[in-house]
């Protein structure tokens, strides 16, 4: 029973980690707290929902929804933040602009689609389950695991093992100096937006799948978790976000399983406060410097 709970918690946490990776990338590299990030999560879930309703398999709907969410992220970033970046506006300004924008987006979406919870078509998440060592893993959970490992691994590979990743890390530290290296920082920023948005969108599909519940405001409650994960993991730290995401998933599932399901959010935020109380730069943070 405990092993099964841990497994479920890790799978949920892997999705949180995936979502938080994109958020921490956006924050660490582009240096904006972009609150529209949660909207890409909602967008990804809805796009996958529509695609599967048209009969597309989830294995194809997931990448398609991720790519579309990435495209939306690039467009929103360009519309909202290009001007602010050029004017070198402070972080509070971008925070307020994106807060306004995301509330407008959620409200517009609710007005258009209604607030009801939608379910994926029954065929999509049916299918068998794997049983081994007394543990049960559904096909949906298998897809979640595979997607998280591939996407997180891909991001780590990009950031740590490629020249492009090196340029992104350079831009995160000193955007002006990066341009002096010949790096087209505007294009690179758009690429980072795309990757972030795609990770959020993929996260939306996977959480929609995990709980089989899709609604316009799902991105909002996820954003709160995104904050917990990136703050606990250390702002801008990819490995920290991975670890903190997994931790949060396990804590939530165990709280729901052994205490009460209504308490899981309380526990998540108590965790945030407790970590920051004892380690102001995050669970794994060494200094206050930005990493990406």
């Amino acid at each position: 029973m405990l092993a099964q709970q841990l497994l479920n918690g890790l799978l949920l946490g892997a999705t949180y980690a995936l979502f938080a990776l994109g958020f921490t990338l956006m924050f660490g590299v582009l240096r904006v707290v972009n609150l529209t990030y949660g909207f890409y999560f909602t967008a990804g879930a809805f796009i996958a929902l529509w695609l599967t309703q048209f009969g597309l398999s989830l294995w194809l709907a997931l990448p398609a929804a991720a790519i579309a969410s990435g495209g939306i992220a690039v467009a929103v970033d360009w519309l909202l933040l290009t001007r602010l970046r050029r004017a070198k506006a402070d972080e509070l300004t971008s925070l307020m602009v994106t807060l306004g924008a995301v509330l407008a987006l959620y409200a517009a979406m609710t007005a258009w689609l209604g607030p009801d919870i939608r379910r994926l078509p029954p065929g999509v998440i049916a299918g068998g389950a794997l049983e081994a060592f007394g543990l049960r893993v559904s096909t949906a959970q298998l897809l979640i695991l595979l997607a998280c490992v591939l996407l997180a691994g891909g991001l780590l590979w990009l950031m740590r093992a490629t020249r492009l990743g090196l340029a992104i890390r350079a831009m995160a530290e000193r955007p002006d100096t990066a341009a002096l290296m010949g790096i087209a920082t505007g294009q690179l920023a758009a690429l980072v937006s795309f990757i972030s948005g795609a990770l959020a969108g993929a996260g939306g599909v996977l959480i929609g799948l995990n709980f089989n519940a899709i609604h316009p405001y799902m991105g909002e409650s996820m954003m709160l978790r995104g904050f917990v994960v990136i703050v606990v993991g250390g702002l801008g730290d990819i490995f920290g976000a991975l670890a903190a995401g997994l931790l949060l998933g396990v804590v939530e599932v165990l709280t729901a399983g052994y205490l009460a399901s209504g308490l899981k959010e309380a526990v998540a935020f108590a965790l945030l406060v407790a970590v920051l109380w004892t380690r102001p730069s995050g669970l794994f943070g060494v200094a206050q410097g930005r990493k990406a």
Binding site: R169, A170, E173, L180, M181, G182, I183, G289, K291
Partner: peptide, 24 residues
């Protein structure tokens, strides 16, 4: 012209205060 295009033309700046990428 944008900074990265000027580098491509062979004019390269060593900025004030070195500005190395300290974490790299």
């Amino acid at each position: 012209l944008a900074a990265h295009r000027i580098v491509a033309r062979g004019m390269v700046q060593v900025p004030e205060g070195r500005q190395v990428f300290a974490a790299l």
